[in-house]
């Protein structure tokens, strides 16, 4: 039996003021094996640029763009995720995205690149716990063996019926980025998929 310990109203941005069951846990377990929370208001920029301007752009962002696809680089709170040969997603500290966008769009290379603020289009959700890979593998065709999906690796993939960008931060800690309108579905899916392990959903960071 799964029981709902308490219910609170969470003013999450992505979850559309959805009433969240904050803790769902099987009686037989002392603690839930999955934790989920939204990383609110994270700055997100979609950046397109070719090889020529990659290093220059990295300098402006203060975080080098990864050379290989499916990799991330991080520096001083900023993440650069490679999405394809010429496409990157930059995660920046909340509130810094407008200034960063301006800086990039007024730089010398602005003609040859595209910088689009997608902070509100996408949301970032952090998931962790000893069973996180098992839950992900219920809806995602990616190989989650630690030898195959390791720290600083990122992929664009489907999680159940939603498209996400999945990033491995630590062995049992991931963030994924999805379109905001899919956040509620993903949350429902995650709570359901964690049924056997128990899940703790927090108000967000």
């Amino acid at each position: 039996m799964v029981d709902t310990i308490s219910r609170i109203v969470v003013g999450c941005t992505a979850f559309n003021d959805k009433k969240l069951p904050i803790l769902k846990k099987p009686e037989s377990l002392k603690a839930p094996l999955i934790e989920l929370s939204e990383i609110k208001h994270l700055g997100k920029l979609n950046v397109r640029c070719g090889k020529k301007n990659r290093d220059a752009l990295g300098k402006l962002i203060h975080c080098n763009l990864p050379i290989q696809i499916n990799q991330i680089n991080s520096k001083a709170g900023r993440f650069a995720i490679s999405l394809g040969p010429d496409e990157y997603l930059i995660l920046a500290e909340p509130g810094s995205e407008n200034q960063l966008e301006k800086t990039l769009n007024s730089s010398d290379i602005s003609k040859y690149i595209s910088v689009v603020n997608v902070s509100d289009a996408l949301c970032a959700i952090q998931i962790s716990g000893p069973k996180v890979r098992d839950v992900l593998s219920k809806g995602c065709a990616i190989d989650f063996h630690p030898d195959s999906f390791y720290k600083n690796k990122a992929v664009q993939c489907d999680l159940a019926l939603a498209n996400i960008v999945l990033v491995c931060l630590e062995e049992n800690e991931f963030i994924f980025i999805c379109r905001t309108s899919f956040a509620e579905y993903i949350l429902d899916w995650f709570i359901d998929a964690s049924y056997e392990y128990g899940i703790f959903v927090s108000d967000g960071i």
Partner: peptide
């Protein structure tokens, strides 16, 4: 599988939905 009921198809809502 679990693609049933509310999980059959994602429902997308706008920010003005409430």
């Amino acid at each position: 599988g679990r693609n049933i009921g509310g999980l059959f198809d994602p429902v997308r809502k706008t920010r003005m939905h409430s």
